[in-house]
Structure formats: structure tokens, C-alpha cells
Simulated assay, not measured.
Amino acid sequence: MVKITDVARHAGVSPSTVSYALSGKRSISRETRQRIEASIRELGYRPHAGARALASSRSNVVALVVPLRTGMHVPVVTQFAVSVVTGARGHDHDVLLLTQEEGEDGLRRVADSALVDALIVMDVQLHDPRLPLLRSLALPSVLIGFPAEPAGLTCIDLDFRAAGEACVEQLALLGHRCVALVGSPPEVYVRQTGFARRVARGFTAAADRHGLASSIHPCEASGAAARRTAERLLREHPALTGVVVHNEAVLEPLVDAFEQLGLSVPGDLSVVAICPDKLAEAARTPLTSVAIPSAEVGARAVELLMAKLSGAPVPVSTLLPPRLTVRASTGPRGTG
């Protein structure tokens, strides 16, 4: 392990000078600082986390608050978490993962502990009870997701309303006149999770704009629920030719159920998903989809947080535009 004395010897300065360069407690010449920085890079020296914290009065730790509630698709949540961890490490910060459903009490406990410098909060509800506390805390925070009233907060996410609209626009372009949204599990809508509600609003708005018959069907995250939903759709909407799916857990069993009920994809039924690209590409019939950009959202959330920690101004809202990729699961109406 490289020590501060090794850096000092390599740079031709005293260990205390290296310490001053790291902490900023005493001014040193530009030439000496550059020589020390070059030695640090060449030797691969990493200051001890405790020493950094003492020098800066910071812990160099970010809390990622992601309560694992029912109805959440854990693999996608994990993608967001990994992207936050990767982004934070790029800024020499560690991540404390908080998955308990503790609400305001949990946030206050973490804020009062001095364990973390800042917060990234996920699974944001339209009227999230944590918002008043987040607005009042001294700790900087960034929300991955949008409440109904984002004033006084810093929020980033995919534009899920535009994503819902983009899916319907694609189906309308192909001539489909009766479409359905197979959405998140019912409990996700009940607690008014922002992204699910916005997809539904975008879906309905685009369908109305194009004069399409449309319906929304929350679906539990199971194969049996997917089968029941497919049966109900065909029973209640015999003219159905286009389906938007915003529920990663039922993508494969839902398509299987439609095919077992005698429909071919895309000959009789076109399917568009809102899901990660890898999931869409891996389907037996590759799915036309709007990507969930978890890596970009996580990385940019960290960038926003680091800017806030440094005192730099940041935008209140960052909405990433949807990116739709056409694959084999969609075609013109009536091609079967």
C-alpha cells in the first residue's frame, strides 16, 4: 500500500507538504502542487477515507434511498443503484444503500448521524410525504423521479409521460385503432408512484389525440396475472391490435399468453414495451421499446449532487427525452 511518505519521497517534499496539498489547509506553490499531484497519479496513492473526512468535514458518502416496496421490479432498481454507485466512485464517494420503508424518520436519522454528505432518493410518489423534510434538510439531495410539485427540489428522470405518448404514436403510425396499456402492479398506482401515473397520462393523451380506443390495465407481477390480463383484454376488446407494456416482470409471460390464445406477434398484435434495452432485445420476438436509461439517469443524478455539494447552481428539473427503438414486435395493423 502506497503511503503519504512514499508520495513525499517521490515528489521531493516533506510528508507535511503532501498533507497540506491534500487538505488545502495551507497554500503551497503551483509547481510543488503539480509535482505532488503527478506523484500521486504515478504511484496510485489514495488518501485514507477518514483522513479525507477530517480534512474536509465530510464523510465522502452518499445515501441512496430506495425503499423496496411491493410492486417494484428489483432488477431494474438494481440497475439504477449500480449506476449511482459507479458514478459516485468516479467522484471518490462511497454509497450507503437504504432499502427500509422508513419514510421521514429514516431520512431524519441519516441526516442527523453525519454518516453521509448528501442524498439520492428513488421511488418518488406524486404526493410523497418525505418532500417537506427533504426541502428543509441542510443536506443536498437529488430525486430520481418527479413529485406533483417539484419546486424547491432537484429532480431527474426519464420523461415517462412522453414515453407513454411515444409508444402510442408508433402504434398509431402503423394504423392501429384499438390499443391497451398493461401497466404496473395495482399497488404502484395506489401509492401514486410518479412514473407509473405519468406513463398512463401520456398513453391516454396520445390515444385521445389520434382518436384511438384505449384502456389501461394494471397487472400483478406474475405469469398467472399476465394470462388473466391477456384473456380479459381479448374478451373485452375484440378489436385490440396494439398493446403497450410498462411492467417488466410480465413482458415475456404476457406475449406468451397472447400467442397461446391464438394471436401472432406482430401479425395479429403489435407490442411496444417501456423497459431496459437488454430486456427488449432478449425477448423471443425482440420488442419495439422505449428504453429506461438507468445508467444515464444514475450518472447524471450523481453529477447534479456533486454540483450541489460544491455550491454550483443546478436545474430544478432534468427530463430525459424518450428513445424508441423499432424491433420485430410491431407491424402494420392487419398483417396477420
Rank of each mutant, 00 (worst) to 15 (best):
A11W: 08
V13A: 06
V13R: 03
S14L: 02
Y20E: 04
S39K: 03
R41I: 01
L43F: 06
Y45D: 00
P47S: 00
P47V: 04
S56I: 05
S59H: 08
V62Q: 04
V65I: 14
G71K: 01
V74G: 13
V74L: 15
V77T: 11
V77N: 03
T78A: 15
F80A: 02
T86F: 01
G87L: 00
H91K: 14
T99A: 05
T99E: 07
E101F: 08
E104T: 14
R108F: 10
S113Q: 00
L119T: 04
V121H: 14
D128N: 07
L131E: 09
S136W: 15
A138I: 09
P140S: 03
G145F: 00
E149P: 06
I156F: 05
R161A: 15
R161S: 11
E165T: 09
Q170G: 14
L171D: 03
R177W: 09
A180W: 07
S184G: 12
P185D: 00
V188F: 04
Q192A: 07
F195R: 13
V199Q: 04
G202W: 00
T204R: 14
A205K: 11
A205S: 13
G211P: 08
S214M: 02
I216E: 04
E220W: 09
A221K: 06
G223S: 10
R228C: 10
L234P: 04
R235W: 08
P238R: 02
A239T: 09
E248H: 12
A249T: 15
L251M: 13
L251P: 01
P253Q: 03
L263F: 06
L263W: 06
S264Y: 13
I274W: 03
D277H: 05
A280E: 12
A280N: 06
E281S: 15
A282Q: 15
A282E: 13
A283F: 12
I292F: 11
I292Q: 13
G298E: 00
P313C: 10
V316A: 15
L319Q: 03
L320E: 13
P321Y: 10
R323S: 08
L324Y: 09
R327Y: 11
A328H: 10
